[in-house]
Design a protein around this nucleic acid. Structure first.
Lengths: 208, 208
DNA sequence: TACTAATGAGTAGTAATCAG
DNA sequence: CTGATTACTACTCATTAGTA
């Protein structure tokens, strides 16, 4: 059963501190310090008008963005109980959420990425774009194969006998341990280089 | 309705201490310190109205939430013997438990997360949101994952045998216990560090 | 407040690349 | 192929910060 009480103390809805100011500012049933009347998002003081949601104040711009009063696809308004997609802080009519590359309409569960302009791209187009990018900037990312202990053992045992295996031997090794031929080749190159390095550095210690 | 009374020795229903204040606050047969008139749940002072249950006071919001009088989805009342979902301290009509992003209706067994506002988000939307967020704030911190006892048991048992598991082992563990690969890696790193710390500190006690 | 998940700087080892 | 270099992976150590 609700009971109404006398107003005992009054706290500011913004900072939750007691209001000692001469005047209380009342905004739609909530009380505020004059100084606390700021947009919850951008913290700009709210001088002319403000929007309220969940006891929080917003400037028009941030309110529209956050609570989706304007579709970022067609730039038209969104009615209060219209269904929307929320995406990266923007709202879209269900029918206005399109991939900016292929214009296909997104459905729930579709994977997507966000362009530099904050607009959605479907995963397929994104992947193609990445592939294309890597084709044209081939040395930006270099996937590194990690060679397991198993494979290393095999490679090492061959290396001890034959540090410079022929193409045919390399092919055998490659299929046997399940590595790319090129990877095997590079491994032997690097291994020889490392060996040489350790030998020369050992030598320099002795001679110094 | 509150009544002010003359000061006689009376105990506060909230803190059970003697009331020495000039005025006693009486709320439905119980006496309270002015300062103790707070919501039992959120501890906010009760300025306008309060709800009572079992000699405890609640603000309207928490009362409705706690005693399930109001569906947190449609904001309408819940009849005493109506079926509800209970989620994170709130009640919902069976048909009112919707993902706040895609509005899809939850079914028993569906995975969900809870938004900052305490509302449910389906796992798919949550994952997409996280992906986005990380795409656009790549150097913001990853939220701290809490590792369950179950997972800890698994990790520890592996650690005893192999304190330095290979990438492949880590991958196996990660999928088995349902943790991110990186999280597993960090756990092993931290575990090794902790072990080392305890060993060296034990040593310093002996040698000192 | 203690424990510990996460971060960051610095380092080692080595797979991959490039020039010659 | 070699030699030099680049850059990916993983580690340690010290610190920061989230949570029971």
């Amino acid at each position: 059963m609700p009971h109404s009480l006398l107003a005992i103390k009054q706290k500011c809805t913004g900072c939750n501190q007691l209001i000692q100011d001469k005047f209380l500012l009342k905004v739609a049933d909530d009380l505020w310090h004059e100084d606390c009347l700021r947009c919850y998002k951008c913290t700009q003081p709210l001088s002319k008008s403000c929007y309220i949601k969940d006891h929080k104040l917003y400037c028009k711009e941030d309110y529209d963005k956050r609570f989706g009063r304007k579709c970022q696809g067609c730039n038209l308004g969104i009615l209060p109980d219209e269904m929307v997609y929320r995406l990266h802080g923007s709202c879209y009519h269900i029918n206005c959420l399109l991939c900016i590359v292929c214009s296909r309409q997104f459905k729930v569960g579709d994977k997507y990425y966000i362009s530099d302009e904050g607009k959605p791209i479907c995963k397929e187009d994104y992947d193609v774009a990445i592939m294309y990018f890597q084709l044209h900037h081939p040395n930006l990312k270099r996937p590194r194969t990690s060679i397991t202990q198993q494979q290393l053992k095999m490679l090492n045992s061959v290396y001890r006998i034959k540090p410079r295996p022929s193409r045919i031997t390399r092919e055998m090794i490659a299929t046997k341990v399940g590595l790319d031929l090129r990877v095997v080749q590079v491994w032997f190159q690097n291994k020889r280089a490392k060996d040489k390095r350790s030998i020369t550095s050992a030598h320099s210690i002795i001679t110094e």
